Simulated assay, not measured.
Amino acid sequence: MTIAHWVVGDGPALLLVHAGVADARMWARQVDELSQDHRVITLDLRGYGETPLEPAAKYSDAGDLIAVLDELGVDTVEAVGASYGGYVVQQAASRHPERFSRLVLLCAPTDGVVPTDDLRAVWGEEEQLLEANDVDGATDLMVRSFIGPDASDEARELLRTMQKRAYDVQLAAGDVDNEEWPVEPEKITAPVRLVTGAHDFAWFGNCAAYLAERLPNAELVELPWAGHLPTLERPAEALGLVLVR
């Protein structure tokens, strides 16, 4: 399986891993500026964007991430993960801490924290819509739920396009076996910036607080304006979250 990925620019390697409602296109507004002094790597995880998902596939998103770095000859990398992408980054950094020099986790889930009732309700509604083959309804639900009030119409439409693509690919593949590597915060030695949004589901803030207590070197940043996807909601301002200032 070839994981679709793109490399732009020269300098220290910087890996951007997309959210579970998106794909690599979510970083489009940041890549040009980041690539002025970084070698920026974006990718589509299996079942997203341009990376297919084979029926009954057995794989690991975290393993795929490490395989892409190996293919590119990247020994150490700064990594930015949004939402589910942040969870994949945690898995990879727990098993291979020496490969990561710095992490930025944007509204990311983690192991060991119980989901809140409001998020469970959205997941339940999503499941009902998909069981009724209402993919458009499920897509609209995700857009309403996972992008904050400051997002432009353009950003909302991009999110709708990315989520619809993910549903189309994943529903066609059916059940798959994605091995999740354990997240062990105490083993992640790189400095970690944890970002949360005031308009996001409380669970993601709970996850950031949990990680902040356990990571050896963590910084917690709370954004009063943000929902779940700050880099889509305020693209220019979000550069400050990714870069070392």
Rank of each mutant, 00 (worst) to 15 (best):
H96S: 12
S101F: 15
P109Q: 08
D140R: 11
A132L: 11
A92R: 00
C107Y: 12
L103F: 12
D111H: 09
W123Q: 13
A92E: 00
C107R: 10
A93N: 06
V89M: 04
P115Q: 07
S94W: 07
Q91D: 02
Y84K: 09
A108S: 12
V113F: 05
F100I: 06
A132V: 11
A132T: 11
T139K: 01
L130A: 08
Q90D: 05
L130T: 08
A92H: 00
T139I: 02
G86Q: 01
L106W: 05
F146H: 04
G112P: 03
A108F: 04
R102S: 12
V143T: 08
S83D: 04
Q90F: 03
L106I: 13
Q91F: 01
G148M: 02
S101V: 15
D140C: 08
V88M: 00
L141W: 06
A93V: 08
A121M: 12
T110P: 01
A121F: 11
V89R: 00
R95A: 11
L130V: 10
A82N: 07
S94V: 08
V88L: 02
R144G: 13
L106A: 09
G124V: 09
P97I: 10
S94G: 09
D117V: 13
D111N: 10
G112H: 10
Y84F: 13
V88F: 00
V114D: 14
G85M: 00
M142E: 08
S101A: 15
E126V: 13
E127S: 15
A82D: 04
F100H: 05
T139W: 00
L130S: 07
P97M: 11
F100R: 02
G124C: 11
A108P: 03
V114L: 13
T116M: 10
V122G: 03
P149R: 11
V114A: 14
D118M: 10
L129F: 10
D111E: 12
V89Y: 01
A121W: 10
G148T: 04
A93Q: 05
T110V: 07
A108G: 08
G86I: 01
G81Y: 01
T110E: 02
C107E: 12
D111L: 06
P115N: 07
F100D: 00
A92S: 06
V89P: 00
D111V: 06
D140M: 10
L106H: 05
L141V: 08
E126M: 14
V122P: 00
I147T: 02
G81K: 02
L106Y: 09
F146S: 02
E127T: 15
E125G: 14
G148N: 03
T139N: 03
L105V: 07
T110Q: 03
R102W: 15
L129D: 04
Y87N: 03
N133L: 14
A92N: 03
W123D: 12
L130I: 11
Q91E: 06
I147Y: 02
A82V: 08
V122Q: 04
V89F: 04
F100S: 01
Q128Y: 13
D117K: 12
P109I: 04
A138T: 04
T110R: 02
D118F: 11
A138P: 00
Y87K: 04
A138G: 05
P149D: 08
V135N: 03
L141Q: 06
V122N: 04
V135G: 03
D118N: 13
